[in-house]
Design a protein around this nucleic acid. Sequence first.
DNA 1: CCTACCGATCGGTAGG
DNA 2: CCTACCGATCGGTAGG
Lengths: 196, 196
Amino acid sequence: MARPNRKEEIFKTALALMRVHGYRNTSMRDIAGALNMEAPSLYNHISSKEDLLWQTCTRIAGAFEKGIAEVNDIYFNPQEKLGMAIRFHIEVLTHDLDASYVFVHEWRHLQSELRDALIVRRDRYEAAFREILAQGESEGVFVDSDNKFALLTILSSLNWVVEWYRPDGDMSPSQIANQLTEFILNGLNKHHNYVR
Amino acid sequence: MARPNRKEEIFKTALALMRVHGYRNTSMRDIAGALNMEAPSLYNHISSKEDLLWQTCTRIAGAFEKGIAEVNDIYFNPQEKLGMAIRFHIEVLTHDLDASYVFVHEWRHLQSELRDALIVRRDRYEAAFREILAQGESEGVFVDSDNKFALLTILSSLNWVVEWYRPDGDMSPSQIANQLTEFILNGLNKHHNYVR
DNA sequence: CCTACCGATCGGTAGG
DNA sequence: CCTACCGATCGGTAGG
């Protein structure tokens, strides 16, 4: 009876359901039903419902961290750095859309200790992004913006991609990254400021 | 015993709780407790938990619609139009942050008929925004972008404001609107395209 | 992997 | 505005 990747099947099914209906609106019975099982059988493969969410969040958070670390290792030019950071971010989001969507929307449902741990990691990630903006400013290639504000605006436009991206849609992840990079670099470009 | 604005107090308390804990994680007992009442007493003032969400969503949706209609009535220049549309949008979001936050995050928990009605209204709002971008393109003042893409990117950066705006923070709603407008107009400005 | 089942909690009603 | 209470549903356990 034991299937090799039953655990993965459970995660995949659960995340697909949670993306559509939300974490709280997806019951263990829903997940089991989609796999032709009974709810208690799920506990032979996973430890709790919350663990489904937690494992997913840490996995995605880890992917983001790996991306930003790579950017800082390889690139020096702030524009290139920002462009690659955007590219990695979009790659993570689009590579496993169900997991990313659940991560972005449902992490609040974790217990406070787990949630706090994620917030720390998110803040660290945002600080690394912000560092790129600060570097661009000090080198005189980005406008002197309110760093925090610019960062929030940039990340919001990146994260919103989970709302409308479709693997079979018009734009590939790479094209999305290109367009967003162009849009954002225009917004930051020191020598081309739009004057009202 | 009857207090004049008990209904409003219930809405206000419920939305504040739902913003922090989410719709599903806020029980009628939680809401009642915060008002020193018992849960069944709430039903003398409201009809259902879902109605709290529905009334809130329609109210905010109406405010957005009023804003975009006003913009289209008064302004002709596409840059001005876009700037004012951004300004109204930010005003609605910041004017009642609890309600806006709940609207943005929790509308999915409505029954399908109500949810569908909101989607129709949202699509209409987005179409009006998009019309402004199309006008700017045809007049040659905005870059020829993928309209849908540009629109999603713009609205995402606007809606993300509910995540970080604090009434007692550094930036006023007006300053936020100014910064976002500048950032977005730079991104769209035809004659100042950043070239990679 | 299942049956049987538990304690907790939910939105909401009856009746006053 | 309250007490008493309902039927439904939840995550999860016991035991096999």
